[in-house]
Design a protein around this nucleic acid. Structure first.
Length: 218
DNA sequence: GATGCGATTCACT
DNA sequence: GTGAATCGCATCG
């Protein structure tokens, strides 16, 4: 099945319903970009239209999530909270907008470059511990949106690890920071791996601005 | 056309 | 451990 052109992996083009399985299979894979390589230790799965309230594709195709509706193997960069970028991998077949959010990993090469981009993070496990940190360590932003991760045409390269990950170490649980669909255990990580981000239950927005600090009724 | 919320991280206590 | 800062998109009228 060796064919020229873009690499084809087992996780590509699967039905959106299998996105959870696909997400697990990506744990341990290597992501290389801009001179930095990260070994994935934590990911999250996002489903398709009408299936997953937390997914950007839930309400159908829009200008922003167009990449999710395309073929597998492409990057979907999402700008969040007005200051951070997150890297997703489109994994579904065309028309089936399944994606995997790369949440955390261990920097196994290019620590110097990653450290530099991450400012004062130092050469610690925090270099790529968290979705935005991971994207930052890899030097990625919106310009990488829609680029291929498998054919070498873009800045990002996703490769299979030499040694397969021990499936027994894979853990699952609720996704982080997601209100809708939080009960779906679509977050996967490598058990015992120190680079896995801390679990934070969905924090309800507390607006303190524009409202007087009352409530202390007499 | 205007408003509210979101897949987060950093700094301070 | 908790609060603050931030931009774009989607929704409602």
């Amino acid at each position: 099945v060796a064919a020229k052109g873009p690499a084809v992996f087992a996780w590509m083009g699967r039905p959106a319903a299998e996105v959870a399985t696909v997400a697990q299979s990506l744990l341990g894979w290597h992501v290389n970009a801009n001179g930095v390589t990260v070994r994935l230790s934590e990911v999250e799965a996002y489903g398709g239209v009408g299936e997953d309230p937390a997914s950007h594709a839930y309400r159908g195709q829009t200008r922003r999530n167009t990449v999710m509706f395309g073929p597998a193997g492409y990057a979907y960069m999402y700008f969040v909270f007005g200051m951070h970028w997150c890297l997703n991998v489109v994994v579904g077949a065309p028309g089936e907008p399944a994606a995997v959010l790369l949440r955390a990993g261990e920097v196994i090469a290019g620590a110097d470059a990653a450290c530099e981009r991450r400012g004062g993070a130092g050469r610690s496990r925090d270099l790529a511990r968290g979705p935005a940190r991971l994207a930052m360590a890899l030097g990625l932003d919106g310009s990488a949106d829609g680029t291929s991760l498998v054919d070498g045409s873009g800045p990002i390269k996703l490769t299979e690890p030499l040694a397969a990950l021990d499936r027994g170490k894979i853990c699952c649980g609720p996704r982080v920071g997601v209100a809708g669909g939080a009960s779906i255990p679509w977050r996967f990580w490598v058990g015992g791996d120190p680079t896995v981000s801390a679990y934070r239950p969905h924090v309800p927005r507390q607006r303190t601005r524009g409202k007087p600090v009352v409530g202390e009724s007499g």
